[in-house]
């Protein structure tokens, strides 16, 4: 059953990503001011959605892990933490490409951009900690994720005091016609892709943990040096 869902989500993501360029270039209307440059939107915005989704999942799973101390929640947190870095990298590379066309600059120290960058950096720190923290760093990583998630609204308010020139949240709900269809295909493909990555990464984490457990056991009973 799990396998079927996994394969179905994978197939959906593949179809979605194959269809997306066709819709982006031939079906979606040209934006009135940016023309062709606006089209990166269909890749940028879903990636940002997935980034925030995985921040939320990572924070939630970390809190669950600290309360229940069940390693399966740690696997979920580790997987989601990695995905924040991945989708954040997509957001932070596609954004400046658009920014160069729209604002004439790759990067501006704007509220929305700074928030995303700081949030991404918290989770890069999280990934570094998981790689190089050594044994016993799960708890520490969970603490960092918890503090990081608590940081999200603060970072948001701290930099929102500055003026923003980033397009607002009202862009997505107000999409019309083929633009809306194209966006939904993109968001759907990204979501399916996100889910299979998350599931695969959780399974990988679990296998690694079990392997370590079995190795410890083997050393204990003298079958492994």
């Amino acid at each position: 059953m799990k396998r079927t869902i996994f394969l179905a989500a994978g197939a959906l993501a593949a179809v979605g990503f194959a269809l997306l360029p066709f819709f982006v270039f031939f079906r979606a209307e040209l934006a009135y001011d940016l023309y062709f440059n606006q089209k990166i939107f269909y890749y940028h915005v879903p990636a940002a959605f997935m980034m925030f989704l995985s921040v939320f999942i990572c924070g939630f799973a970390s809190a669950k892990f600290l309360i229940s101390r069940q390693p399966r929640w740690d696997d979920v947190a580790a997987a989601a933490g990695d995905l924040v870095v991945l989708f954040g990298a997509l957001v932070l590379t596609s954004g400046p490409i658009w920014g160069k066309a729209a604002w004439g600059q790759y990067w501006v120290w704007d509220a929305r951009l700074t928030t995303s960058l700081l949030l991404w950096m918290i989770f890069v720190a999280y990934a570094l900690l998981r790689r190089f923290g050594g044994p016993g760093s799960e708890r520490l990583a969970a603490g960092l994720a918890l503090f990081g998630t608590a940081d999200v609204p603060l970072v948001y308010f701290a930099v929102n005091f500055w003026k923003t020139q980033h397009p607002t949240n009202r862009v997505v709900p107000n999409l019309v016609g083929e633009m809306r269809t194209t966006f939904l295909i993109g968001a759907g493909a990204y979501l399916c892709f996100f889910l299979i990555l998350l599931a695969a990464r959780i399974a990988l984490g679990r296998s690694e943990r079990r392997l370590a457990e079995v190795e410890d056991l083997a050393v204990e009973i003298g079958r492994l040096e």
């Binding site: 700081l118 950096m121 918290i122 720190a125 999280y126 570094l128 900690l129 190089f132 923290g133 960092l144 503090f147 990081g148 940081d151 603060l154 970072v155 308010f157 701290a158």
Partner: peptide, 14 residues
């Protein structure tokens, strides 16, 4: 020594 500043600064940045 290396991890402390790396995880501390992003959190205290606000």
């Amino acid at each position: 020594e290396t991890l402390l500043p790396v995880i501390l600064y992003p959190i205290v940045l606000p």
